[in-house]
Design a protein around this nucleic acid. Structure first.
Lengths: 140, 140
DNA sequence: CTTGCACCTCTAGTCGCTAGAGCATGTAGG
DNA sequence: CCTACATGCTCTAGCGACTAGAGGTGCAAG
């Protein structure tokens, strides 16, 4: 059997070495076997699990949700209703975040366009920040 | 002179009480005068400053940037080039974040739509997470 | 005068890592 | 076989921007 070091695991999964150790410490990844010299030795399944975690993190899932998703993956007989619920909740979050960022973008554009590059006391950036009432697109 | 307590400052500015104390501790807000009983007593200018900070935080500016923006506001003779640069940088960040969230939204939608609500081993949510190659809209 | 809320300070916890110190191990070249 | 040097190990502390809690004091109403 090929022994995968933590460095190789990091390269193959795209998860950084200290992060892998961190995931082990919080119980997201099982502690792997060790070599004679006490070095972690991973299996291909661990790499897949790490890639799963990484992808889920990139999608913005929190560690708690990932824990549930991993538990579901480990037990394929279960209904995927939980996974679906988690993904749907995340989708709603993302949609809200997009809406709020769009409003924010508009507000920033107004600020930047309004800036005449003169003195601060005529600057729209400062002005808009100081007085929220000037926001054209309320986002909160 | 009317004395504004920290609680009233919180209500008027929309910044929570412990957060106001935190801002004082990191030097974002000057320490106000105190009453006989050692209670903080704010001026209307402090409330405006807090509202400024709150608004900037809502727009996603980091405390470091807010520090600069506040310094600019305090000295209105200065050129607003820095304020403009900060706002522009933030605008670019926001635009990138929106793009990445849109990609993410698409991916989540595919996951959720593909979920047949059956068993986990046929669930697209789990499947897509496990295999990044299935992303239709690569976002990273 | 007492009740009860608001205020005070201080410490520690949150989340998801990241950085650093100070060692041990593994590997490639000479 | 020896020496470099990369990589591994553990442990602690730090990041940002708060938030929570303990344990105490101030103050205003009934």
């Amino acid at each position: 059997m090929k022994k995968i070091t933590i460095g190789d695991a990091a390269r193959q999964s795209g998860v950084k070495v200290p992060t892998i150790r961190y995931y082990e410490s919080i119980g997201l990844l099982a502690a792997p076997s060790r070599s004679q010299g006490n070095q972690r030795s991973y299996e291909p399944a661990d790499i897949r699990r790490l890639a799963f975690i990484r992808h889920a993190r990139e999608l913005g899932f929190e560690v708690g949700s990932i824990r549930t998703l991993l538990a579901l993956q480990d037990d394929p007989d279960q209904s995927c209703a939980s996974a679906d619920a988690i993904a749907k909740a995340r989708l709603i979050e993302v949609e809200q975040r997009i809406r709020s960022l769009m409003a924010l973008k508009t507000e920033l554009e107004i600020m930047v366009e309004g800036c005449g590059h003169g003195r601060v006391d005529q600057c729209r950036v400062i002005e808009v920040l100081a007085d929220h009432g000037q926001c054209m697109h309320p986002h909160h």
